[in-house]
Structures are given as C-alpha cells and as structure tokens.
Nucleic acid binder design. Structure first.
Lengths: 331, 331
DNA sequence: TTTATATATGTAATCGTTTACAAAGGAGAG
DNA sequence: CTCTCCTTTGTAAACGATTACATATATAAA
C-alpha cells in the first residue's frame, strides 16, 4: 500500500506538506510542490478515501434511491442528478431497492454510517412514519415521487394538473367515455393523476364511471392483459388516459387487436414521453416533464441541505402535453 | 456524532468489547452483550464506515461500470450481480460512464483510492492498453462485453455462434437476401455478430453483399432513419438480422411503413429478448441470454479475485433463439 | 491451599489522512 | 545587530473503528 508516508519520504518532506499539495494549500513553495507531485506521479499515488473521509467527516457521496434502473424516464432524471452532482463535486451512487423496504432502510442506514452525505429518494416504499424515523436528521430530498407532510423537501411536477390537462385534451376532442388505466400503488403520482382525471370529467359534466378505471402494474404485459380483460368483458370506451407510456402502448395494442382504430375509435394519451411513444403505430400523445432539470434541481437542493443552508420545501416544475397520432391522427 | 466510545461508556465496558459485540465475537458474556446492545439501541448507534474500512483495509463495495442504466437487458444482468453480491455480503454500486473515458477512469481510480474492492465492467470505452494500465492490479471482471488479451477475466455468451444461428434460422426459412443492421462501434458483440452473420452466409453459399449491412446507433430513432434510408434508396431484402431488439423494432416499423409484410415479405430477428419484442406487431424473434446468471457469475468471479483465489479466465454461457411472429408468423 | 487453565475484558497500537500549532528561516525595520 | 513579521515546513493529535496482547477473574485440578 502506497500511503502519504511513502510520498513524503520520496519527496523528502513531511506528510503535512504532501497533504497540503493535495488539498491545494497556497503556502507550499513551487519547488516543493514539484517534488511532491513527482513523487506522487512516480508511485501513482492515490489517497485513501476512508482515511480522508474519516478525518474530514464528509464523503462527498450522495445516494440515489430508486426502485429499478430500467425506467427510461427516471434514467433522464438520474442523468440530471449526476450532471449537477458533478458540478458540485459530489459523487452519485445509484441504489436500486426493487421495492424492498429492507433494502431501502439498508441504504438509508449507509448514510448514518457515514458512507454518504445524503440521498435523493425517487419513490419511497416505506410508510411515512417509518421513513421519517429512519432518516432522522440526515439530508434527504424527494424527487418525482414523494410523501407529503413529513418535512422532506421535494421536486416534482403538478401531477393533478397534468392529468387534468391530458383528460381535458381528450374531452375537447369530443370523447365522452374516457377510460383511465393506472396502477394501484401508494405512489402519489398515481393518486393525483386519478384525481386530475376525475376532476376534468367533473368539470366537463361527464359522470365518473368506476368501470372505466383499469388497474394493473407498470409492466407492459400486465397492462396488456388488463386491457384485454376490459375489452373482452364487453366494456367500451372512446378514449384512454394511461398513467405511463408503456401502459398506453399496451392499451393501443389491445385496442387494435380488438379491431379498434387509433385514434378514430379510441384516442390514447400516455405519460412521460419515453421512446416507446415513437415505436407504437400511431405514435403516442403524452405528458412530457423536464426530467433533467428535475434531477438537477433535486441535487442542488440536497447540496444546500448537506451544507446546512436554507432550502425551500417544494419545487414544482412545468410539464407539457405533446400531441401525436394516438389522439389527433396525422395532421 | 455517536461513536463507539459513547456506547462503551453507556454500557460501562471498553470499546473493544463493543467492537466484539458488533463483529460477533464469541467471547463476550451474554449479560455484557445485552448491555452493549441496549446502549447501541438507545443511541441508535451506527458504526462509522470510513473508520472500519480504514482499519480493515476493505470496503466490501464493488463497482459496476456501464454506459447507461436504461438498457433493459443490462438491467437484468445488474440484478444478477446485485443478488450475488448480497449473498457474498458485498454491496454493489452502479456507476454510469455515458461512454466517457474520463468518467470510466475516474471510477476505476475510486478503487485505487480504496473506495471499493473491485469492479465489474460492462463494456469499456478505454483503449485496451489504457484500460490495462488504469486498472493495474485491482480486481476486475468483464461482463457481457469485453476486450480480449489483456488478462481480465470475463463472462459472456458466444456472440459469433449466436449470430450464426440467428442467420441460419433465416436461411432455413428460405431467405436469400438477408440484411444486417448493426452499430459501428468497438464493442466485441457488434464485431462477432457481424462475423457470425457472414460465416452463416458463407456456409450456406450466399454471397456477402456490403450493401446489406446497415449501421446506425443503438437508438430507436436512429435505426429507424437508417432503415428508411435503406428502403428509400431502392435496396431490397427478404430478411433482417438486427444486433438488438430495439433496432429490430425499428426495422419492422420501417419495413411496414414501406408496405412490406412481416414476416411474409421480410423476416426479422433481433437480439436480447427485451420487452419490446412483445410490443411490436408481430412479436420479435430474438436471441435470448441468461442475463441473471451472467451477472451472478461475474460477481462470483470478482469475489474470488478480491479474495486472491484462482479464477478461470473466461465463462461462456449458453444462449437460445426464441422464435416468434417476426420470422415464423403465427403458428 | 496452590497452581494451571479458560474465559472475559481492558489497554493501546494501528489504519492513512487532515490540520492546529509549533518552529525554523529569511526579510525588513529600527 | 536585534526584533518583528511573514512564509514555509514539520510535529503530533485527532478522526472511529479493529485487534494483538495483557490482565483480571473464575473454575478446576492437584
């Protein structure tokens, strides 16, 4: 193991001087610095992280907790986090929980163990009180998904409003029987999007029909099955608002398999603007978010938190509807 | 900061005893252990990672270096790594390089800095000699993608054989003009799959036509553009072998847009068996790999390397062709 | 009883940094 | 020349754990 001692000896200086060179102190004579740098070069010296972290009481690591790495929408959010953290001289570590509460607590404990300085949570699976208790006073920011009223700041869009606008878009196209395919989970996005959907129906005088709400999970195959069940049981609609593009893709496929034309018979709107929107035929009308900014805003917030500075409690970013063939046909 | 000192004082024992309790030493009296555990509980004590790592000279972290987190095939590989690492009491950290050589070197240096004990590299972007030089003697395993002859062990499939079989499948369906859509990069999978494709043509007496090789990047949109160019320039084929399912999906869409029926006019085979295979109509015939096992094998190999044990230089896993509608129609 | 042995615990060195403080050396002022 | 001040460097004490070794206590054997 090459330690700072080795370098100090080689350069004929004390370890303090070597440390000063590494940390950019301005009280080292240029010639001395040169000797030190040469010694470091010669041995290809790399300072020991653990020792440094132990002494400095900071790691400059931040954890990103998410369910799975495969979501293309979240991948862009994570890129935003990474880019921001690089600017702030932090290092981002992606931790996948696969919805396991145990894993989530494990990762959060890593921060108490001083393995990281803070975390960005994208969709916690812990119960609010449990999350509150687990994190104690460690710096945490919620991103995209969040839990309200537990005093953890967050960055997100206004999901209710976005869903309202998506549904409104369908209503304005003259659709009356609008189905909603969603996921029965604890995520706030699912809940608020359902609320926005219902609110829009309400405001436009369309009666809410529980039969028009289809629940599945985020998987493509599962959503396909749910939609097939819907059509096979004789239910009919003239529009579908899906809480994800994958589910929208399933809806399109299922509808087409049942002989419906998209968008003539059934108009479809998805959510997130991922690549799949271009893969289906027709392409999917969807709600797009500023993913990269969402990530970078969360990271900047976290950095302030770690530094003990003031932060706002909530950042709400804008969203926009992208109209494509699945709702408006070829224009 | 609650340290081992705090706990020792609270429990009325020495720090050594507290440490023994944490590390499961069997020479602690049950009553003593109870006192210590109660003190730990009371203060919600979490031992400091940096201190422990510094002293133990190991971190039990392993890095997974990959270009991007969004690839669903690699997500399964990573899950295999994570599951294996959990069994081995290692902790996996996913590091995305976005094909940046700088980032890749940065992450590898983290190991020299004793931030992690080793790494699994999925597709290096460094030049072979540079990779060799950067890693020095740190434990590394290559997974899925690899560079040959630089003494870094690897886990992968036989890409040449898999591509050969995919092409052979198309030939046996009676196809004569088989196009190949690939990516012009340095990855061995692209190279070997092209070789396998050519070998199959050769063995079955079909002359290789450079015009039948289309290059793009892994993106869905780009592949779509390349395929459109192909058809628009008047080129024709009766089958397409794509090195990825996404590109196969693009090929199908482009072909359909140009009025070709899949698989009647053009049969298509992809690679990786990701969800997109079920989204296109018809579903995509593809080469499937044992992703989870690939990841776990790599992790087990890495653990042996870290422990200084012997490992084999190469593990080649089996693959299999899944026949679906894009090549064989509905059966 | 003494002695040997086993068990349980404590003491202190150690890991590789950073950094407060001390000290050495040189420059300038008087 | 002496004194002061500044610049540069060194010394040594942290940081919080682990662990070799020492020590104390209890138990068993003689």
């Amino acid at each position: 193991m090459i330690s700072i001692q080795t370098i100090a000896k080689e350069a004929g200086v004390s370890v303090a001087t070597v440390s000063r060179v590494m940390n950019g102190s301005d009280s080292v004579r240029p010639e001395t610095e040169k000797k030190v740098r040469e010694a470091m070069e010669k041995y290809n010296y790399q300072p020991n992280f653990s020792a440094r972290n132990l002494r400095k009481m900071e790691t400059r690591n931040v954890l990103v907790l998410m369910s799975s790495i495969v979501n293309p929408f979240l991948a862009k959010v994570v890129k935003g986090i990474e880019d921001a953290s690089e600017n702030l001289d932090y290092h981002t570590l992606v931790c996948t929980t696969y919805d396991s509460q145990e894993k989530e607590k494990f990762y959060l404990d890593m921060i108490s163990k001083r393995f990281a300085d803070g975390a960005i949570i994208i969709g916690s699976n812990l119960k609010p009180q449990e999350l509150r208790k687990t994190i104690g006073h460690i710096p945490i920011v919620q991103c995209s998904e969040y839990i309200v009223d537990i005093g953890i700041p967050r960055v997100s869009i206004d999901n209710r409003k976005a869903a309202y606008e998506a549904t409104e878009h369908l209503i304005r196209l003259g659709r009356k029987k609008i189905a909603h395919i969603t996921v029965d989970n604890h995520y706030i996005s699912s809940r608020l999007r359902l609320e926005g959907y219902r609110q829009a129906l309400d405001d436009y005088g369309i009666e809410f029909d529980p039969d028009m709400v289809i629940t599945g999970n985020y998987g493509y195959k599962n959503a396909l099955r749910q939609m097939n069940n819907f059509f096979n049981s004789g239910k009919r609609c003239d529009a579908i608002f899906a809480i994800s593009d994958r589910m929208a893709a399933s809806a399109i496929k299922s509808a087409q398999n049942h002989g419906f034309k998209i968008p003539d018979d059934i108009a479809v709107v998805g959510f997130d603007n991922i690549d799949i929107c271009y893969i289906t035929e027709p392409n999917i009308t969807t709600v797009s978010q500023r993913e990269h900014e969402m990530g970078s805003a969360a990271m900047n917030m976290l950095a302030r938190l770690i530094a003990g500075k003031e932060t706002c409690e909530e950042i709400v970013l804008s969203h926009f509807l992208i109209e494509r063939g699945s709702s408006v046909g070829h224009r």
